[in-house]
Simulated assay, not measured.
Amino acid sequence: MSAPTTPGSAVADLLGLVALGELLAFERMAADARLAPDLRRRAALGEMAAAEIASYRRLADRLTALGVRPEDAMAPYVEALQAYHDSTQPRDWAEAVTKAYVGDAITDDFLRAITTALDEPDRCLVLDVLHESRYAEFAAAEIRSAVDADPRVAHRLSMWARRLVGEALSQANRVAAADRGALTALIAQGERVDVQALFRQLTAAHTQRMLAAGLNN
């Protein structure tokens, strides 16, 4: 079933995209937790997964309140987002936390920027479901620990992070190219979101995060 064509369909499209991202992130983190070298780290990633599914529920409830079935709002984005996760399955714990660190941060930066085109209460909702800083700090600390233990790991993780960004941008282009006119209009409406400036900001923020984790961009 296609997404609704009511005046609120742009908001529903965006909430559906965010909701699916949260749902897939939950599945990914829950599975990746098994790569943890000890129970403390396994529990930490499990807590991150729990936060993702809690955010999904808030978004799904909001979609329902808008008269939209969550599965319908999410359906147009399944192929692109699932392709990203399928093509970036981590081989070990260091790659798992790097994926959480890089992928979640880029997503958060993007959502933080485009929420300027939303009205309340949806803008507040999207901002509220962004990842807590303590999770990014945990992932960055794990990356630095892996590099300290074996400096050779830095090159591998730097290349892995570069691949994650490339895959994320590739799938983002697929989403943008899809026939989601209402969503595209929402993101680019007026001068509230400068798309070219946004991508420059995303790139600059990613570079700073890589340096903070002890990796090369």
Results as ranks from 00 to 15, higher is better:
1 M>W: 06
3 A>T: 15
3 A>R: 13
5 T>R: 10
9 S>Y: 03
10 A>I: 00
12 A>P: 00
13 D>A: 15
13 D>M: 00
16 G>V: 03
19 A>T: 08
21 G>Q: 00
22 E>K: 15
26 F>V: 05
28 R>I: 00
31 A>Q: 14
34 R>S: 14
34 R>L: 11
34 R>E: 15
38 D>C: 10
39 L>N: 09
39 L>E: 14
43 A>Q: 11
43 A>S: 04
44 A>P: 01
49 A>H: 00
52 E>N: 03
53 I>T: 09
53 I>P: 02
57 R>K: 08
58 R>I: 01
64 T>E: 14
70 P>V: 07
71 E>K: 06
71 E>N: 05
75 A>N: 12
78 V>T: 11
79 E>N: 00
82 Q>N: 08
84 Y>I: 02
86 D>R: 15
88 T>W: 08
93 W>D: 07
94 A>R: 00
95 E>N: 08
95 E>V: 02
95 E>F: 03
99 K>Q: 04
99 K>R: 10
102 V>G: 04
103 G>R: 12
106 I>H: 03
107 T>S: 11
109 D>E: 02
110 F>A: 13
111 L>M: 10
113 A>W: 09
116 T>A: 15
117 A>T: 14
117 A>S: 15
119 D>M: 04
119 D>T: 13
125 L>T: 08
125 L>C: 10
126 V>E: 04
129 V>W: 02
130 L>W: 00
130 L>C: 15
130 L>R: 13
132 E>R: 14
133 S>N: 07
136 A>L: 14
142 E>F: 02
144 R>N: 05
145 S>E: 15
148 D>Y: 12
154 A>I: 06
154 A>T: 10
157 L>G: 02
160 W>T: 10
161 A>N: 03
162 R>T: 08
162 R>L: 08
165 V>S: 10
165 V>I: 09
169 L>W: 02
171 Q>I: 07
172 A>W: 12
172 A>G: 13
172 A>D: 08
174 R>L: 14
175 V>N: 11
179 D>Y: 04
184 T>Q: 15
184 T>M: 13
185 A>W: 01
186 L>Y: 11
193 V>Y: 10
195 V>H: 06
195 V>C: 12
198 L>M: 14
198 L>V: 09
201 Q>A: 13
207 T>I: 10
209 R>N: 06
209 R>K: 12
210 M>N: 06
210 M>I: 07
210 M>C: 13
213 A>L: 01
216 N>H: 13
